[in-house]
Structures are given as C-alpha cells and as structure tokens.
Design a protein around this nucleic acid. Sequence first.
DNA 1: AAGAGATCGAACCGATCGGTACGACCTGAG
DNA 2: CTCAGGTCGTACCGATCGGTTCGATCTCTT
Lengths: 212, 212
Amino acid sequence: MLTAERTDRYDLWMPVPRGSTIDPARTRAAILEAATRVLYERGLDGIGVAELCTRVGVSKETLYRHFGTKDGLVDAVLRARSDRVTNWLAAAAAAAGDDPSDQLAAVFDALQRWYDEPAFRGCAMLNAAAQHHVDAVRTLTARHLDRYLELLTGIAARAGAVDPSGLSRQLLMLVEGATVVAAHHDPAGAATAARQAALTLLSAAARPGRQD
Amino acid sequence: MLTAERTDRYDLWMPVPRGSTIDPARTRAAILEAATRVLYERGLDGIGVAELCTRVGVSKETLYRHFGTKDGLVDAVLRARSDRVTNWLAAAAAAAGDDPSDQLAAVFDALQRWYDEPAFRGCAMLNAAAQHHVDAVRTLTARHLDRYLELLTGIAARAGAVDPSGLSRQLLMLVEGATVVAAHHDPAGAATAARQAALTLLSAAARPGRQD
DNA sequence: AAGAGATCGAACCGATCGGTACGACCTGAG
DNA sequence: CTCAGGTCGTACCGATCGGTTCGATCTCTT
C-alpha cells in the first residue's frame, strides 16, 4: 500500500522518496491530507468511515489506530485546515507590501482565487459547524474566526482606523459574506466585489467624517 | 392527539377553535411548523424521523402520508422558511417609510432582533445547504439568496446608486456575513455593525466619487 | 346506526452506521 | 534469521436509520 497506482484515490504520498514504506507519521499525514479533501467534498456526515477509508487508501484499523474515532479524525482535519487557511491568507497579505490597503486587497484577491477553484464548496469550518452540532467543532470554528479577526485588526490598525477592532469585524463580515455568496449563489467576482466594499470601508474609517 | 397537554412538544395547534379535531390540512400545517423548529434546532440529519415524530406529536404514518419522505418534509420546511423570512424582512423595510437609507437600516435592525433570540442558530437555509448535499436543497438556498438580492436591489436603486445590482450584492454579503458572525462568533451587535457598514456603502455609492 | 377516513402506537424491515477483532502479510531493526 | 509491529482485508457487532404495515381508536358525515 501507499504506492501510487489507483484511480479513485488521492495520491498524496507520491513524493515518498522510496524506502521506509511503513512510516506511521507519514501514514498519519497522508490520511489527514486525503481525509481533508474527501470530508470537504462530501460533508462530515456525508460519507461513512468504510467508504472514507477506501477513498483515502487505508484500512479501518489503521485509521482508527491513528485517530481513535471519526470525531477524532474530524477534529484533526479541522485544526489542520484552520491553520493552513489562516497562514495562507496571512502570507497573501504579507506579500502585498507595507500598504494596509494593498494588504487588504490582497486578502480578497486570494479569496477570489479560492472561489474560482472547481472544488470550492464554501468555508470548511462553517460547513462543519453547520453540520456537526458538537461543541468541539463549534469551538474550533469560533477560534477560526478569531484568527481572521486578528489578521484584519492588524490591517485596520496599520491603516489608522479610528476603531480598528470595530472595522475589522465589518471586514470579517465581508470575508465570510463573500464566501457564502460565492458558495451558494455565484462565485464569479464575489471577492472582487467584497474587496471594493472593504476598501471603501477602510478609507472611510481611516479618514473619519460622515459615515452614518 | 393534537390536544394541548405535553411538556416536550411544541403546542402550535392550541388556537384550534374546537370541533373538526381531525383536519388533515391543519395537521399538515402543525407538522410543518413544529418540524421547522425542531429541524432548525437539531439540524436536518441531527434527528431521526422517529424522534422527530415524538417531538412534533404525530405518528410516523401521519407524517409520511403528508410528506411522503423525510426529504419531502425537509423541502416543504425550507420553502416555508424561505417565504416567511423573506416576507418578514421585506415588511420590516416597508414599515420604515420611504427613505431607502431608513429601509436598509430597518433590515439590519430586524436582523439584530433575530440574532438576539436565544434560539438563533444561523441562517436555516445556509445550514441546510451545508449539511444536505442534495441539489434540491442547494437550489432552494440559491433562490433564497436571490430573494434577498431582489429586496436589496430595490433599496439600492431607490437610493440612486450608480450600480444598484453591484451594490446590492455587497449588501447581501454584509447580511450573510453578519449572520455568520452572529451564529459562529458573537451575536451581540453584529447586525448593528453591519448596518453601519451598509449605510457607509450606500452613501458612497449614491454620491459617487472616490471609493476605491 | 353505519361507514369513511384520519390518526395512533408498536412491531417490523433491510440498509447503513461507527467501531472492533482477527489472521495474513510485509518491512525494518536486532 | 527472527521478531516486533504497522498494515490489510474481511467479517462481525449492536445501534440507528428511513420507511412500511397493521389493528385499534376516534371523529365526522350521512
């Protein structure tokens, strides 16, 4: 197993450099990566453990030894996903230079690239929280939004906003709202429209005057 | 059955004016109303038909005769929910007078009252679409967003926005984003913050100048 | 009084669920 | 070579799922 010829599986272990075929840590990472995609595509409760193991390419015993429970796997998947997405957005902002407006625009440009992917199915954290009425999942989702908020608050503060945390909350709504609209209505240009709105809010907050 | 003493049930048939206790249409309406609450609280797949019947207060045979299938019940529930919410928001806007800004503010004020309810658990349509990967549900959700968009486009047009449909899409993102933030992060003042952002966008779009 | 129909409650069905157990295989370490 | 252990494939478990069936009960209509 863990070789590379199959059609109905994700071949994430391809770059294995030969040798040490049985490496528990690598097996765990491969399960995590493949399960992330499958669970995102099908929904947490939309696929059973048996079929999930087939798609991932491991036996049930292996999956259960590494993650103990389906909920344990879901928890690990969501944590990894939250980390990855947050780092990806922060990197996009950082790569845009020092101008806070440019950084904010870069965040939405990154989101638009995500929306345009054929596999895009909305925010995995929100989908999970909407399905699984488990406290652990809801807590992870809230923490995920906290991380977004932290990123946006930094941008708002550097832009000289009068109320950085208030503004960042509005920007967070644009981020999540754009994701919802892209997932459930029309992904074309969703983040681009949200970007324009975000920049309008940013400039209005940085140059306080009449806004309400 | 359909009398009024139970503790773990929703007593929606109380205003029955005596007589004609067995009225299929009324039974169907009662199931629909109670199932709407229970499915919203527990999630579409979070409760089985057996327990759902107990909570609703009907037998399985009755439920299946009226709705044929659990999916049939879900479909009917979501359609009714979409109608109700849309009409409720439109009424809130209409009651605010003729000023488009006042109408927009009234929409968000209504949303804030919703977020403040203890039973608030996010947008039922989005939750359903995130859970049930069935085309019928996703279609209903898209239509639901279309209705929101129609309401917001009317307001944007009456406000004299340069690009009413573009603005209304941004406003829709604020509506949905505020709902997401309220459901998964913090409901306090979510719609109020979104309202301020919406009015900023509205005035910027109605009085075009530098906005990006 | 009698029949039609709506409802109940409980038993029942096959399918699927999450999770466990076991024998066989293979690999790397000593 | 031998052994420990990661993995596979399959069978299996009890629970729950959506859905069906049936006899008893109740109400309205005629």
